[in-house]
Design a protein around this nucleic acid. Structure first.
Lengths: 353, 353
DNA sequence: CTGTTAGCGCTTTCAA
DNA sequence: TTGAAAGCGCTAACAG
């Protein structure tokens, strides 16, 4: 049983190949009687149009390329799931690549995808402002949309992380926190981390508080670094009472670090995250975090592209979407304890390890 | 600037299209001087072979279809990452689909993938023994490999979860636990869950202990159901002192459930998982779990297929791989507290449910 | 070793 | 409304 061609069907139905093609691509242009005959024949034989031949002829593959930093972070896994669903619904398939946050991989992935002939690209890059990929895409005139990234000169589906963090800082301030630390992965690695940090700075400025930033390696050793930091300040007046983490994965590690140095969350230390990964709700304490609609970001980016591919409009920055963020109340944040007069607010229960 | 063809390059280099093709597909068959001239011309023009045309001609797409239950479970996300890496390394691209554990989606996904003309499929199905997809693949003579699933009549890349759980039960037994509960998602949904349960039963039998199974909805309400169960037995003699969870996501929820009903992990209740998701190490307490090499499962499945596609060998059950599992010591398991005097520690308690 | 030639399976003018 | 014919860009015989 070798692959069936359009000829087999045309033969079976007693029509020309062209008619079979029409039945599949523009059924309304074929007289109903014939159309049904063809459909019956195709069904009987189990015929499936050959995508490569179609692509070669039409110059479109009905495939979308997807470039993401990693799938180890549930944020991107969830997003990819949204992309996959929406693409399937629209009759597109997807071809994903991951970059592991390596700049060179971004370009490489995009090139491979372009060579594959995908109709459009969805990508999340390290830094939208200085990404080599984007120029490449412009040159190739390939439709694309950035996700999570925000940039005035590109079509983006994103959220206003900066404002959200600012308001989170406000929330912590309102709970009585005065020494609020921000923990982030390497700022240089991600424009989103930079934006969140910017939001933190603004929030702190608005509250007239002194900002503190702890940059940690994102992948390895983050917990150790945070534990060390917290331990060193354990008994000092500048010990933070709350930590804003640049993402949920860091927040989870931060809670562990706190525990390691004998700080209870949230009694001794409030911890907030950013991303809203599903797992956060199952932790104890449940993570308080700013929730990104990752699935929807994926979905909307697909819709934008599919729409653009259908019509004559060229996708541009004007089509950018900013989706809503919301704060999810968990159990990892509590009001700051009232400082006891004349002494440091909390007494250490343990000294050096 | 419209897409370049092989003719443009052949023209530029002053050779025939066939030679250009050879330079790209079998460089060693072209005399070095010519080869370099062609390569220079191609590079100068920025030529990229058109994949659709090549696929049409060769009947191979150099693409692998991937069918997974979901990406919300980090196990599969990690695995997909392994697949993506290995595929990229071998010059293949991947086209993933998720089924959300719905049987109908499995068939649907496979059909779409087959229609897309992928060269081979990697899939994880709900139940390898009664999956409609597999017959379909056989019929289509499409190479495929199952991952995570184990079945004597199919090529599989998997682990022996059953034995691992048996030995886990032994480990708990050795720690003094006598009332060991198993928590699982719907057994009917997944052959892996069934195998793990089987391993549990064997372990319990070997230790002469009475098995208890709690089946919970995997997606929603699992925590509540577990909390309820634990609360009901909170002070009763048959209260479990250890829980073996069918996967890490459940184990995490189990720890939360325990906490909700006032049980400390691991002091009052030991909790073990299965999967070894990376996040488990960052929890407090860190999850003790059986680690599956998910990335490697992905990698190896790709290698198997790529190898089979290269040679003349038809992939069969004989090529199945069983990868090693290992236990990761976390902090969620502790020795059982000494039972109250008057009870023999090595004998099962004879209490009716 | 290189060129010529003939399609792969499909869509799409153009005629009928 | 339907059919005939001409390729889309590439590779694989087959000659030379």
């Amino acid at each position: 049983m070798k692959p069936l061609t359009i000829r087999d069907v045309s033969h079976e139905a007693g029509v020309s190949p062209a008619t079979v093609s029409r039945v599949f691509n523009a059924p309304e242009t074929v007289r109903p009687a014939l159309r049904e005959r063809v459909q019956a024949a195709a069904a009987a034989l189990g015929y499936r149009p050959n995508i490569s031949a179609r692509s070669l002829r039409t110059q479109r593959t009905r495939a979308l390329g997807v470039v993401l930093p990693t799938l180890s972070n549930p944020v991107f896994a969830e997003c990819l799931q949204g992309i996959a669903q929406a693409a399937a619904a629209a009759g597109y398939s997807i071809v994903p690549f991951t970059t592991d946050y390596e700049l060179a991989h971004e370009t490489h992935a995009a090139n491979l995808l372009l060579a594959r002939g995908v109709d459009a690209l969805i990508l999340c890059v390290a830094n939208a402002a200085r990404s080599a990929v984007l120029a490449r895409l412009r040159a190739a005139k390939s439709p694309y949309v950035l996700i999570y990234n925000r940039h005035a000169r590109h079509p983006c589906v994103s959220v206003d992380g900066q404002a959200a963090v600012t308001s989170l800082v406000g929330r912590l301030h309102a709970l009585g926190h005065r020494r609020i630390l921000m923990v982030s992965g390497a700022l240089a690695t991600s424009d989103r981390a930079q934006q969140r940090h910017q939001g933190y700075l603004e929030g702190m400025a608005a509250a007239r508080l002194k900002p503190q930033l702890l940059e940690v390696p994102f992948m390895e050793g983050a917990t150790e670094r945070m534990a060390e930091y917290l331990a060193a300040r354990r008994v000092m007046p500048q010990a933070p009472t709350a930590v804003v983490c640049s993402n949920d994965l860091l927040a989870i590690r931060c809670m562990r670090a706190a525990h390691q140095v004998g700080l209870r969350v949230p009694e001794d230390l409030s911890v907030a995250g950013f991303d809203g990964i599903a797992l956060g709700e199952d932790l104890t304490p449940a993570l308080s975090t700013i929730v990104q609609p990752s699935t929807e970001i994926g979905r909307r980016s697909v819709e934008l592209l599919v729409q653009a591919l259908a019509g004559p409009v060229r996708l541009g920055p004007a089509h950018s979407l900013t989706l809503d963020l919301h704060f999810r109340e968990g159990e990892s944040i509590a009001p700051a304890r009232v400082p006891s007069p004349g002494t440091s607010p909390s007494l250490p229960r343990r000294t050096s390890p």
